[in-house]
Structures are given as structure tokens and as C-alpha cells.
Write a protein that binds this DNA or RNA. Structure first.
Lengths: 199, 199
DNA sequence: TGTACATCAGTGAACGCGCGTTCACTGATGTAC
DNA sequence: TGTACATCAGTGAACGCGCGTTCACTGATGTAC
């Protein structure tokens, strides 16, 4: 078809963008290369001009998703101090909100890819682990701003525990959304209340 | 081959048992019927004498895994009061232990099947939700025995929040085991410490 | 600046392979008499 | 209790299908002169 280098790079990004969404929603093995390419606006064959294999794409997807996830987090943490809520409060409430629960495709990639990378291992898992560490650092910053002093536990430790609870609550809420929506909301609410008081 | 009804029922259970393990370890779509049957000691064709389809097996597997998971929980909660540790303490420490992290195949099915059922929906998800509810009830009992009074929050609410944190910690620890074992252990440890003090 | 040609992103048919499922066959089980 | 026969769990080859991947082809891009 003939396409400029610039346009080709755009197209590569479009494929990755489609994959970061679809892989979170349905899992890597739940999305075929043909469907993926179609969803990005191309036909199947072109895939291999950009990636060596589907596994190669998975690695690129985790890198991209983690970078994007970190950007979202940082932006959220230092968001314009609109409203009276603290950073901490806003972060928790947003993370455990219905819109976030229902938006697996562009929601927190740590929650969306956790099970995937535990089975994949390798490079994607390394990217994921780096992304997790970055997130913990940002959250520790939020806790510091909150003045969440604790003689026994470091900020990092507290951030890891908080993030674990948030991720668990989100994954559990998502796991029963379709058949038990009331239970799903109850899970979010119980965790919001548990995290309402300072940890 | 010719097999008694009794033996046939045993064989059906063996297939389900193999599947509850393999599906947790590698996901439903990561295990083929042929491999599954081989792992249970049979050839592929016999599968359809016991189940209408692979989806039908998935439903049976979730029922079985939830029943077994509940039995494990109840047993753990009322375990012989050996040692000085409280039920609560024992539960948390075991849940966040390395052996439990490394035993996805027969570990907590709520953690092992969470992502799977969020995509599957339907009957398997209903079984899962029932299993989750049962687990919350058992945990609320453990918290009650601990005298975890809290004027603001019900025992059920506290149990849901606690379980969310445990499940999140386990899933996150598993997600980085292969490439970042130190981080994986740090996640378990941070949550153990966070839950050491009464919630 | 203009022309000739190599490059390479995109197309879509085709490949082999493993999947879930079906089938004809087998032989011990378990029932009818 | 013994014999004849229907049942049905288990076997393993075969089915169609969708998967990841390859390929010959195309035409605009972008370089050489």
C-alpha cells in the first residue's frame, strides 16, 4: 500500500493500543491476531511487519501499559487540588469506583494483567514488576503527603499493603459483576469504608 | 473397556480433580481436553461420556473447587488450638505463606479463579460468588472469635475488606514470583505486617 | 529539481497445527428371563 | 443360579475450525544520481 515511516510508527502504536485494551478485557489467548489487527484497522498479514511474534507484542504491550498506567497514577496523585478531598481519599475512591471496575480495558494495568503475567513470566513479567514498583513509589508519596506516620512500618510497606487491598478489591468486584452485581458493589463499598479511616 | 457405574463415577471425579488443579495453574483456555484427560489417566474421547462440553466441565470444576475451598477454610478456622496463635493469626500467616503462593493448583480457589470467572460469567461465576460469600461468612466468624469489635463496621464488612487484601496480596505476589522473587516476598511480608495489628 | 529504482508497510490467500468435538468400535457390567 | 443380550464407559482415529504464521504481491515512500 505504501506508507510513510511516520505513519507506520503510528500504526504500530495503534496495534499496541488495541492490544493493551483487548488483552486486559479478554486475556492474551482470548484475542487472535486477526481480530486484533482488524480492531486496529488493518488486515492480519501486516502484523509481522511490526512484531516478530504474538509473544513479542505481549512484551511491547506490557511496557506500554505500565508506562501509561504510571502516567495516570502520577497525574492523579498531583491532580489540581480541586475539591476538598485529599489525594489519598481521591485515589481510593476513584480506584474503587464503578466506572473503574467496569473499564477493565483502560483501567489499572496492575489489576488487569496480574494473572496474565504470573503465567507468562519472562520479559512481560519484568515490565509488570517494574510497573508495580513505580506505582508503590507514587502511592508512598501520597501517603507521605497524608502524614501517615507509623513508627513500625515504612511508607513503602504501607503503600504495598494498601495497593494489595485495592487490587484485590477491584479484581474480586470484577469477578462477580455479571451475576451478582449487589455483591460486587458491596465489595467496593466495604473496602472504601475500611480505607476511610487512616491505615 | 467396560467399567462399573461406581468406577465411572470415580473417573468423573478424577477428571474434575485434574481440571481444578490445571485450570487454576494455566487457565481454562491454557489446558486442552486431550491433555486434561491424559493427566487424569484417560484418552480424549471418553471426556464426552461425562460432560456435554468443556464449558460444562468448567461449571462442574467451579462447584467442586468452591466446595473444597470452603471445607478447607472451615477446617482451618476451627483447627485444633495447637500453638499459641489465634485463629485469625494462623489464617493470615498461612494465607500469605510461600507454600500457599507456590501452590496455585490447590490453593485458594477464590484467588485462583477470580480473573477466569470475571470473563466467563454465567454458571461458573454464580458458583464462584456463592463460594466467596461462604468464605466471607467463615472469616467473619474468625473475626468475631477475635473480638474484633468496631462500632462503625459490621463483621461482614471487615471480613470482606480483609479477604480482599489477602487475595490481592496473593495474586500480586504470584504475578512476580518468577522474575522478581524478592519483590514477591516483600509483598507477602508487607501485608502480613499490616494485618498483624488488629484491623 | 526531476527521473529511476529500491524499500518496505499493508493486503489477503494459504500453510500447518492443535483445538473441541464426533464417531465406530470394544468389552466388562448389569439386567431380563 | 445360569445364560443371552443390552448398556454404556473407554479407546483412538478423524472431523472441521480458528489459531499463529508465511508468502507473493501492491504501490506509495524515499533515496540515488
Amino acid at each position: 500500500m505504501g506508507v510513510s515511516k511516520e505513519k507506520a510508527a503510528d500504526n504500530r502504536r495503534a496495534i499496541i493500543a488495541a492490544a493493551t485494551r483487548l488483552f486486559r478485557e479478554r486475556g492474551v489467548s482470548g484475542v487472535g491476531v486477526t481480530e486484533l489487527m482488524k480492531s486496529a484497522g488493518f488486515t492480519q498479514g501486516g502484523f509481522y511487519n511490526h512484531f516478530e511474534s504474538k509473544d513479542d507484542l505481549v512484551a511491547a504491550v506490557l511496557n506500554a501499559a505500565m508506562a501509561e498506567g504510571k502516567a495516570d497514577l502520577v497525574q492523579g496523585a498531583k491532580a489540581p487540588l480541586a475539591g476538598e478531598a485529599s489525594s489519598y481519599r481521591r485515589f481510593v475512591v476513584h480506584y474503587l469506583s464503578l466506572p473503574h471496575r467496569d473499564d477493565v480495558g483502560s483501567g489499572c494495568p496492575i489489576a488487569g494483567f496480574a494473572t496474565e503475567v504470573s503465567r507468562t513470566g519472562g520479559e512481560p513479567q519484568s515490565s509488570y514488576a517494574r510497573g508495580f514498583d513505580d506505582a508503590v513509589t507514587v502511592i508512598a508519596g501520597v501517603l507521605a503527603a497524608e502524614g501517615a506516620a507509623d513508627g513500625q512500618r515504612t511508607l513503602r510497606e504501607q503503600a504495598i499493603a494498601l495497593y494489595s487491598q485495592l487490587v484485590g478489591a477491584l479484581i474480586l468486584a470484577r469477578s462477580v459483576t455479571e451475576t451478582k452485581p449487589a455483591l460486587s458493589e458491596e465489595i467496593l463499598e466495604a473496602n472504601r469504608r475500611a480505607l476511610g479511616r487512616q491505615d
